[in-house]
Amino acid sequence: MGSCERLFNRQRTVHEILGGGLVADVILWRQKNLSLGILMVTFTAWVVFERSGYTLLSLVSSILLLLFAILFLWAKSAAILNRPVPPLPELYLSEEKVNEVAAIVRTHVNDLLCVSQDIALGKDSKLFFKVAVFLWLISFIGGLTDFLTLGYTSLIIILTVPALYERYEDCIDKCMIMSYRKLQELYAKFDVEIVSKVRRSILEKKKLS
């Protein structure tokens, strides 16, 4: 990572922060074909939804209807012509898989409920304000755009910002740290001026009295 001072004094690389697996490789464009494929598929889906007037539910329903119609006609014609039936995989969920997924969902839901309870009972004020700001931002952004456009824009940000940051992190960290220190200096100066004005005001009141 070099000897340059890092933002937030972090020790890990961007790739490690993102998990270090396939997801991190895709986000940082180390799997360029896969990253580009995801981007193009998402862009195509966005164009289809925006230009065709389809909603997600209507599009999924239409695709499933077409798929089932093709398989049904294939199976019927295969029975008449003594041909093989459609090569479908076995559609079956084992009890073990269901229990595993249920356990994962249960753990996350319980964690969410626990956090929600702490917020509702006022046990964590900082978390309350964070959640409130986050929900307000979602509400504000949701009022400016629709869900699909927001999802596509979010994907663009995910597939560009981390990769650009990793490429130019030395320069970005240096600029951000310098800006942060400048703001600290301005805040300290402003704080001193406010304290001085308050003291002068108190002294003047004492003299007048």
Rank of each mutant, 00 (worst) to 15 (best):
I138N: 05
V105M: 14
L71A: 01
L150R: 02
V105N: 08
G122V: 05
D124C: 07
V161P: 04
D111L: 14
P86K: 05
L91V: 08
V115Q: 15
V105E: 09
I138D: 02
F140Q: 08
A120K: 03
V105C: 08
L91K: 03
T149A: 01
Y92L: 14
N82W: 03
L113S: 10
L91A: 14
K126Y: 12
D170F: 11
G151W: 04
E100N: 14
Y152P: 02
Y165T: 05
A69T: 14
Y92I: 06
K126A: 07
E96W: 13
S154A: 08
A78E: 04
P87R: 09
F72R: 07
A102K: 15
E166Q: 12
S139W: 04
V98K: 14
K123E: 12
L73T: 10
N110D: 11
A102E: 11
E100Y: 07
F128V: 03
S77V: 13
D118I: 00
T145P: 00
D124L: 06
L88A: 09
L73W: 10
S94R: 15
L88V: 12
H108A: 11
A69P: 00
Y92S: 12
V101I: 14
D146K: 04
G122K: 01
V115A: 15
F128R: 12
S139L: 07
V105L: 11
L144I: 07
I156M: 10
S154D: 04
V85G: 05
F129I: 06
Y152M: 08
L144S: 10
